[in-house]
Amino acid sequence: MPSKPQTLQNPIIWFLVSLVILWAAPLFLPTFYVYLITEILIVSLFAVSTNVLLGFTGLLSFGQVAFFGSSAYAVSLLIKGTSLPFAASFFISVGLSALAALIIGLFCMRLRAFYFAILTLAFSQIFFVVAYKWTSLTGGDDGIVGIPKKPFFLFDINGPDAYYHFVLLVVMVSLALLYLIIRSPLGEVLQAIRDNSERTEFLGLQVRNYRLASFVIAGTFGGVAGALFAPFQGIVTPELLHWSHSAEPLMISLLGGMYFFFGPIAGAVIFVFIKEWITGFTEYWMFWYGLLLMLLIMYLPGGIMGFISEHIRRGKDGPK
């Protein structure tokens, strides 16, 4: 099949080109923008991982913050409380997120739609209560402050540019893995489940197991984003684990287009810039963001990518 290598080539070239451009970005961007892009990268990864569930499996989880937040807490505690190298703390935290996702996922798999959303939300609120109440471990309301950026293996990642490069590498590798998963047979099955779970079941596939796999994948990469986030902010507080923050990656996916792999990334760029732009002249940015989302759901439920691809398709077909 001669066409296959070509279709494979494209994403790899795109991947390398964006990696090189983003790697060089601190050379010509002021530190403020380096911070902003670091945030966009972390938010992107969290949103893309959440969208594996929302857009590609058809599951609305309102508890993804449990994996992001618990990983952020775990990495902070390990960094501050032990002499483990950062890399070890990082991978342990991500592993814990994966484990938490597996356990919670096993319980949640029997429910659908609203009930699934509320059950995941309730589980994540247990994490919130633990972070809030177990003061001796988590610092309670005050959280954990002064989380240092320790070297990752031999690499010094202290300082905004160095940490940006670290985040960039981890996020790009994670996104590449997620992309491969979505394009793999597993990803195909997930999308089949999203479109028609009964028919997929009739094909002899264990829908439940595939959904669970999707939940663990989302939780794991949500955990990666959380482990990157804690040293970036230097502080974690229980607020991070509150259910209302689970809405953020969902909203971002919706904004960018949840049926597209790159939708949540586009959404994250717009989200972070809108936040930055509107907070410049009013502290009530949430109002405008809420209004934008409401109009989006009313008139453009496919998100921005959906809108663009619709127009490209129409352009190709010619005016009708």
């Binding site: 609305l60 739609a113 209302s244 949430m286 109002f287 809420g290 989302l293 409401m294 009313m298």
Partner: peptide, 28 residues
């Protein structure tokens, strides 16, 4: 105005739309 447009849609979109109400009403 908004809800009437999405009665036929999934719970996911409905939940997210009502969440956008929270953002607006809270900030207002």
């Amino acid at each position: 105005v908004p809800l009437r447009k999405i009665y036929e849609r999934s719970h996911a979109l409905q939940l997210l739309m009502t969440f956008s109400f929270i953002l607006m009403l809270d900030d207002a």
